[in-house]
Nucleic acid binder design. Structure first.
Length: 835
RNA sequence: GGGGGAGUGGCGAAAUGGCAGACGCGCAUGCCUUAGGAGCAUGUGCCUUAACAGGCGUGUGGGUUCGAAUCCCACCUUCCCCA
C-alpha cells in the first residue's frame, strides 16, 4: 500500500517541509470561501424550475464586536441544516444580516467617546469577515442592516400604518424604567424585576409612551395550530399571555365616596360569600377618597413606602403580607354585608382592577393576611367531609357551596356559573376575560434606534410625519453625556421641526423605537431585499414566506417571537401579507457554556478566531455540532477537538488513496458489506440531519469513514464500489464541513460544486443483513448470543437459542414457562425450577 | 410556591419497551517515528476470577412487565421559565 504509506509517513506534524500532501485547512478554506462568493452559489433565485422554495432562517446577531463562540455554535448548526436542505433538492434561501440598533453602541459612545455609528459599522465589518471564515452559505446579496436608513425607514412606515389603524397609540401611565439604561422597557423585557439587558432593578415611572396594541391579538396569539414549535416555547407564550376567565364585581362604597364602587376581578366567584374584606393596591385611585381622617397618616405613610418597593418585593411569597385599614367599608352585593376596605401592597395596580376581594378561607395569601389582621375566615366552599371546623390553611380546590345563600349545595363549578348569572342579571358586574399580556411599550429614551416619526405641535397636537417625508433620519454626530440621557432631546437641529399640518414651529418626538420592531418583520425584507418604493415586494414575499424553518435561542420566547407573531397578524390585517404566522417550524439551539458558565468577553472568554487559526473552520464547525444534541447546547472543552481533527484527516487520507490498487471487480461479500455500511449510513444521516441531530450524524460518518478505510486496506472491493463509498462520504460531509468536502470533491475529479449536488439516496433492502445475532436471555438476563438467518421463524429462533451452550446450562433442571421471540433482536426464556 | 427540562463510565455523550455505554475525548500497552499536541493496532463501566464464568450497574426508593435508562408513583439534586 504505497499510497497510504506515503501520506502516513509524511504526516508527522511538522511545520516545515510541505512536500507531502497534508490536510492544512488554512490552504483550502480561504480559497473556497472566495470562490463560492464570487460565483454566488448560495444566492437564491426567487424561482427555480422544478424546485420547491425553502426559507431557512436563523436569528440575526447584534454586532457587538465579535462573532463569539455561542454564535459559532448557533450558526454552524443552522448553516449545516440549510446546506442539507439545499442538497435535498430545495431552492433554499438562507440569508444573514445585522440587528444593529441598540444600547451597546451608545454605551461605547458614552464610555469611550466612540461614534455609535462608526462603532457599529466597524463591528459589522468584522462580523462579516468572521461569517465568511465560517464558510456559511449565506446569500449576501440579501444582507440587511437594521440601522441603515433604507431599512428603518420602513419601521417608521409601519408605525404610521399601525397608528392609522388603531394599533399604535400614546398613553400616559406607570411604566418600567431602567435607571441604568435610562429608558423605559416593555413588560417582556423585565425579568424577575430586573432589566433583561443589564440586570439593574427596574423602577416605576409615570410618563407618556407609545404602545403597539398587541393585546388586540391576545386570543389569536394563543392559537398555535399548524405551528411546529417546541412545546416549551408555546407554553411560555401561553403563560405570558395569561388568559383567565372570571367575573368582575363591584363593591359599593357610596357611603364613603358618593357614586363610587370598587371593582374587583376574580376567577373564583364561587367564593364571593366568603368575602370578609377588600384590599386596594396602594396606587388605587379610590385610596385617597376612602381613607377616613383617623387613618390618614397611617395610609399615607404606607402608600409612600410601597412606592419605593419593587413589584417582586411586593408580591414575593416569602414576604409577610402587610396592609393598613382605610377606615371605610364596602357592601358585598350578594349578601349585603359590610366589610372593611384595606390597602395592601401585595395588590398591584397594574394587574386586573387594582383591587381584590379578600376570601381568606379560599386563597392562601388572603388567609395569611386575615390571620395577621384578625379578620373573619368564613368557609363557603366546603372540602369533602368538612366537619364545619376551622381550616388549617386556605382550601383552594373545588368543593360544595355552603354559607352561600341560595347557592348552598351546589358544586363550586355550578356555583361559578350560577353566581355569575345572578351578578349579571342584577348588573352588579359581569363575566370578564383578563390577560397577563400588556400592550407592547415601544418608546425608548435612547439615541441609537429608529426615530419615532411624530411631531408635537402646540396647535395641532400629535402629528404623524407624512410618509413622503420618511425616513426621519438620525442626526450624524452628536455629543454623548455621561448621564446617559439621549442626545436627541439635546440636539436643536433634530428637536425643532415644523408642523406638517400648519407649518408652525413644533417639536419632534425624541424617543426611538424598541429594537424588537426591527426583528419583527426582517424576514420579509430578506425575502424581498430591494423592493424599490415599498417595504417589500408582494410577489417575492409570496415566493418565500412564511419562514419554513427558523432557528434561534429560547431566550426570545416572549419577546421577539411573540412580537413577531403579533406584527405578522397586524400586517395581515392591513393587507401586507396573506399568512397568519411568520415562522412555521421553530428550533431552539441550546446554550453553549464554558466550564458550566456563560461565555463572556470579560469573565469567561472563548474567542473563536484563534481556534479557527489553529484547527480550521471545518474542524470548529464539526466539533461544535459533535458536542452533543444541538437543541440542548453543550459545554466547551479544549480537549475534544482533536477527535474531529483526526476524523477530517482520515477523510483527507481515504479520499485521496490510489484506487488503481483495487480491482475492477470485487469480492461479493466484501462489496455487500461495504454497500450495507454505505446505505445504512445514508439512512441514519438523512434522518438525523433533518432532526438537527448533527452529533449522531457525525458519529455515523465517523463509523463509515472507518469502514471505507478497512475495506480499502483489505483490498477486496472493486475500485468503483470503493469510489462510490468515498463520494457518498464526501456528499454527507459537505453540509457539516463544506471546505474539505469541496476540496476533496474536486481532487476526486468531480465537477464543481459539491454543494450543488444532491444528497445520496439509500436502498433499504441493502441495509439489512442475511444473518442476525440474537441475544438470548434466561429470566431476562443475557446468557449468550446466536447467529441465525435473518428470516428465521419463531420456532427456529427459539430452538437455536436453546441450543446455545451457555443457555443450555441455565435451562438445566428448569421447567420452561414462557418463550419470547423479538424478531431480529432477542429470545427470552422464562423458567421456574422443576419439581 | 407553580410549570417545564435534565440526572447514564474519568469526561462529552448514544440507546424512548428488547444485548446499556454507539461515536468521540482521555488513559493503558505495543508498533512506527522520535521534532516539542503526528500516525497505526489493541484494550478500557465497577467487583470477583489464573481462566471459563459470575455478580453489580443508567440520581434514590417503590411499581408495571417475560424484559425498564426508557412507562407509572414518591423523593433527592440541578438548570430554565413564571410568581
Amino acid at each position: 500500500m504505497t499510497t497510504t504509506g506515503k501520506s502516513r509517513s509524511g504526516s508527522d506534524g511538522g511545520k516545515s517541509g510541505n512536500d507531502y500532501n497534508r490536510y492544512t485547512p488554512a490552504d483550502i478554506e480561504k480559497k473556497w470561501q472566495v470562490k463560492w462568493e464570487k460565483d454566488g452559489i448560495y444566492n437564491a433565485a426567487d424561482h427555480v424550475e422544478g424546485k420547491e422554495n425553502y426559507f431557512s432562517l436563523v436569528m440575526f446577531p447584534y454586532p457587538s464586536g465579535d462573532i463569539h463562540m455561542g454564535h459559532w455554535f448557533q450558526y454552524s448548526g443552522s448553516d449545516a441544516y440549510a446546506r442539507f436542505k439545499r442538497m435535498q433538492g430545495y431552492n433554499v434561501l438562507h440569508p444573514q444580516g445585522f440587528d444593529s440598533f441598540g444600547l451597546p453602541a451608545e454605551n461605547a459612545a458614552i464610555e469611550r467617546g466612540e461614534d455609535p455609528r462608526e462603532w457599529t459599522y466597524l463591528n459589522i465589518e468584522n462580523s462579516r469577515r468572521q461569517f465568511r471564515e465560517m464558510g456559511a452559505s449565506y446569500d449576501w446579496t440579501r444582507e440587511l442592516v437594521s440601522s441603515d436608513p433604507e431599512y428603518y425607514k420602513w419601521n417608521q412606515y409601519f408605525f404610521l400604518q399601525f397608528l392609522k389603524n388603531g394599533l399604535a397609540y400614546r398613553k400616559n401611565g406607570q411604566v418600567n424604567w431602567c435607571p441604568n439604561d435610562q429608558t423605559t422597557l416593555a413588560n417582556e423585557q423585565v425579568k424577575d424585576g430586573v432589566c433583561e439587558r443589564c440586570g439593574t432593578t427596574v423602577t416605576k415611572r409615570l410618563m407618556p409612551q407609545w404602545y403597539f396594541a398587541i393585546t388586540k391579538y391576545a386570543d389569536e396569539l394563543l392559537d398555535f395550530g399548524g405551528l411546529d414549535w417546541p412545546e416549551k416555547i408555546k407554553t411560555m407564550q401561553r403563560n405570558w399571555i395569561g388568559r383567565s376567565t372570571g367575573t368582575t364585581i363591584g363593591f359599593d362604597v357610596s357611603e364613603f365616596a358618593a357614586g363610587e364602587q370598587i371593582d374587583t376581578f376574580t376567577t373564583r366567584i364561587d367564593t364571593v360569600y366568603g368575602v370578609t374584606f377588600v384590599v386596594l393596591a396602594p396606587e388605587h385611585p379610590l385610596v385617597e377618597k376612602l381613607t377616613q381622617p383617623a387613618q390618614k397618616a397611617a395610609v399615607e405613610g404606607y402608600v409612600e413606602n410601597a412606592a419605593r418597593e419593587t413589584e417582586i418585593e411586593r408580591t414575593s411569597t416569602e414576604r409577610e403580607k402587610t396592609g393598613v385599614e382605610t377606615g371605610a367599608y364596602c357592601i358585598n352585593p350578594l349578601n349585603g354585608e359590610r366589610v372593611p376596605v384595606l390597602v395592601g401592597d401585595y395588590v398591584l395596580a397594574t394587574y386586573g382592577t387594582g383591587a381584590v376581594m379578600g376570601v381568606p378561607a379560599h386563597d392562601q395569601r388572603d388567609f395569611i393576611f386575615a390571620k395577621k389582621y384578625d379578620l373573619e375566615i368564613r368557609v363557603v366552599v366546603a372540602p369533602p367531609n368538612w366537619d364545619g371546623g376551622e381550616l388549617e390553611e386556605a382550601w383552594i380546590p373545588a368543593g360544595t357551596q355552603v354559607n352561600s345563600g341560595e347557592f348552598d349545595g351546589m358544586s363550586s363549578k355550578e356555583g361559578i356559573e350560577a353566581i355569575a348569572n345572578k351578578i349579571e342579571a342584577n348588573k352588579w358586574g359581569e363575566r370578564t376575560i383578563t390577560y397577563h399580556l400588556r400592550d407592547w411599550l415601544i418608546s425608548r429614551q435612547r439615541f441609537w434606534g429608529t426615530p419615532i416619526p411624530i411631531v408635537y405641535c402646540d396647535d395641532c397636537g400629535t402629528v404623524p410625519v407624512p410618509e413622503n417625508f420618511l425616513p426621519v433620519l438620525l442626526p450624524e454626530s452628536l455629543k454623548f453625556e455621561a448621564d446617559g440621557k439621549s442626545p436627541l432631546a439635546m440636539d436643536p437641529n433634530f428637536l425643532n421641526a415644523t408642523c406638517p399640518d400648519c407649518g408652525k414651529a413644533a417639536k419632534r418626538e425624541t424617543d426611538t423605537l424598541d429594537t424588537f420592531v426591527c426583528s419583527s418583520w426582517y424576514h420579509l425584507r430578506f425575502a424581498s431585499p430591494h423592493p424599490g418604493e415599498d417595504p417589500f415586494d408582494d410577489e417575492q414575499v409570496r415566493a418565500w414566506a412564511p419562514v419554513a424553518a427558523y432557528q434561534g435561542g429560547a431566550e426570545h420566547a416572549v419577546m421577539h417571537l411573540l412580537y413577531s407573531r403579533f406584527f405578522n397578524k397586524a400586517l395581515r390585517d392591513l393587507g401586507y401579507v396573506d399568512f397568519d404566522e411568520p415562522y412555521t417550524k421553530l428550533t431552539n439551539q441550546g446554550m453553549l457554556t464554558k466550564d458550566g458558565g456563560k461565555i463572556s468577553k470579560r469573565s469567561n472568554p472563548l474567542p473563536p478566531d484563534p481556534v479557527v487559526e489553529r484547527h480550521g473552520a471545518d474542524t470548529l464547525r464539526c466539533y461544535l455540532m459533535f458536542l452533543g444534541p444541538w437543541d440542548q447546547g453543550g459545554d466547551w472543552s479544549d480537549s475534544g477537538i482533536n477527535g474531529i481533527t483526526r476524523w477530517l484527516r482520515r477523510i483527507w487520507d481515504v479520499a485521496q488513496r490510489d484506487e488503481s490498487s483495487l480491482g475492477s471487480t470485487g469480492d461479493e461479500t466484501a462489496e455487500r458489506d461495504l454497500a450495507r455500511a454505505a446505505h445504512s449510513t445514508t439512512q441514519r444521516v438523512l434522518a438525523d440531519m433533518d432532526a438537527f441531530k448533527f452529533n449522531t450524524s457525525i458519529a455515523a460518518l465517523m463509523e463509515f469513514t472507518t469502514a471505507l478505510i478497512r475495506s480499502y486496506d483489505a483490498g477486496k472491493v472493486s475500485a468503483s464500489a470503493w469510489r462510490e463509498g468515498v463520494d457518498r462520504l464526501l456528499l454527507h460531509t459537505a453540509p457539516l464541513a463544506p471546505h474539505i468536502a469541496e476540496e476533496l470533491w474536486e481532487r476526486s475529479g468531480h465537477s464543481y460544486s459539491i454543494h450543488l449536488e444532491l444528497s445520496p439516496k439509500f436502498d433499504e433492502s441493502l441495509t439489512v443483513t442475511d444473518t442476525v445475532t440474537l441475544a438470548v436471555q434466561v429470566q431476562g438476563k443475557l446468557r449468550d448470543q446466536v447467529e441465525v438467518a435473518a428470516d428465521i421463524d419463531e420456532a427456529g429462533a427459539i430452538a437455536a437459542a436453546k441450543s446455545a451452550e451457555n443457555v443450555a446450562r441455565h435451562l438445566d433442571g428448569m421447567t420452561i414457562v414462557k418463550e419470547i421471540y423479538v424478531p431480529g433482536r432477542l429470545v427470552n426464556i422464562v423458567v421456574r425450577p422443576a419439581n
